[in-house]
Design a protein around this nucleic acid. Sequence first.
RNA 1: CGGGGCGUAGCGCAGUUUGGCUAGCGCGCCUGCCUUGGGAGCAGGAGGUCGGAGGUUCAAAUCCUCUCGCCCCGACCA
Length: 571
Amino acid sequence: MKWSQSLIPTLKENPSEAEIDSHKLMIRAGLIRRITAGAYAYLPLGTLVLNKVINIVREEMNRAGAIEVFLPALQPLNLLEESGRLNVFGDDLITFEDRHGKTTALGPTHEEIITDIVGNEINSYRQLPITLYQIQTKFRDETRPRFGVLRSKEFIMKDAYSFDIDYEGLNKSYKLMYDAYCRIFDRCDLDYIVVEADSGAMGGDVSHEFMVPSSVGEDVLIRCLKCGYSANRERAEFAPIPKENHVTLQTVKEVLTPNKHTIQEVSTFLKVSSSKMVKTMIYISNGEPIAVLLRGDHEVNETKLTKVLGQEAVALADHTTIEHVTGARLGFAGPVGLKTRIIADQAVSVLSNFVTGANKSDFHLLNVNTERDFKIDQIANVRYVTKGDKCPKCNHDLDISQGIEIGHVFKLGTKYSDALKAKFLDTNGKEKSMIMGCYGIGVNRIIASLIERSHDENGIIWPLLLAPYKVIIIPVNVSDTNSMQMANSIYEDLSNNPGIEVLLDDRDLRPGVKFKDADLIGIPIKIIIGRKFTETKELEIKLRKSGEIFLARPENIKSKIKELFETLSKY
RNA sequence: CGGGGCGUAGCGCAGUUUGGCUAGCGCGCCUGCCUUGGGAGCAGGAGGUCGGAGGUUCAAAUCCUCUCGCCCCGACCA
């Protein structure tokens, strides 16, 4: 491609709409333009990269035995109703009414559609297992689109769905997808880690997230840097906190804490560390209020709490209920004297002489102790990891960092096949629900997270396999006939080789501008025709990433480029 | 959805507090000259419903009301 014939609008200044590096660079390098909040147009360069990522995904899916389909973006509401996810998605679902008054949704994902199809078309164990996948735009009315293509209202997702006759089969299908994901992200040159995850609104049990560590990531990842244990924030386990030895129990004392109702306020007022305080949160479980005790500096993990309680979902009690249960204004709840069931976090169970609310407005209690002052009904792990927590496997310090979720694999089981009646007859002629798995990859996120991790002050640094063009030819002076003849001849020559994608910067601009642009759009290899060429007829080859420079005579250029491809693809 | 901010040329911004003549600056763009190894220089030029509607006023980018859009923090989120 000749630069002058494409549309590559580079920007010298940072766009005001962008906050993070990848977003700024995608705009500056002319990959994307925003059309409206959460929706982006991919310009020629962006489209080339997008297609490269898609091709890699497609190749690896096919290699793993998955079969490609293409599903509609339009979805009827009844299937989402049947699976119970109409409520789960709620306002995230983009819907519209057609001219006949029928409401249709723009698909946020496609479990229901695929399950419906497979349920209709597959009837026998002989037709299983099967894994179908598609690469398609999904729509979600995100409350807050952010960070360019990292969180947008429409995005491209590869989603695959496996159908098996039993859990053994599911495990195999899952493993195949898991391995394919590793190959995809390896080929995209991403540094990623895999974490255990909770399956959340998808349903099902086992799940893994593929994350790219990044300070701009919206997901929290918990890792043990010693033994390799890793999980996301909802899922992460940690070692129990040991009980202090030889503690003398002190006498309970009621103290006045006027209008101090947050942990922070009480901590400051009484000069007691929040880790020596216990907060009492009133939840509603099965219609009954229960008390959940947590150390002052800890946060409740509702995902874990939900599981402990064996519920679908839990919610904090409203103010009136809390005041009724505790007999005090909000902020002065404590376990002493409470009549409700009391669930204590493990960290609370090992604490002694702590501070709690007195169940009396404007008062707290000092030196409260479990057993002596109140009874715990159940000790459980219902909190998030905090700094200082230890690895559940090797007791080393846990590391808490952020990451971008680029892929997620789930073992769904029969949640959807039960709801949408996707059944088959087994060898005994008995009807059974198919065992499902689902597997997603955020295609746009691969690009953004790659840039997030691979750029410098001059611009993007593409890995060879994702670069929109692998080589850029820069004639320093386009009005010099010899240079231009050489540039065109190399361009023609290299363009005839399918694997070498070449961009010729034929614009009549000063060299500085062309060098800066080449760096900005991140082309791995530059071929510069300039001073050296005039002097010695040699061409200069410069690498974007390392800055290394090689000289080659025109007749050797093709072999040199191929040699560099070899080197660049080895890492 | 709660809180904050912004909207002036293709991009980045000043001007708005305290209303005043023809609305500015940098980059980019067009023409010419010159220049050609890291975002040159000179000369000339094009480009604006000041987000939109209504109002106040002799006079509105500037004040008031409504409205649309965008960004940030939070809540939310496979």
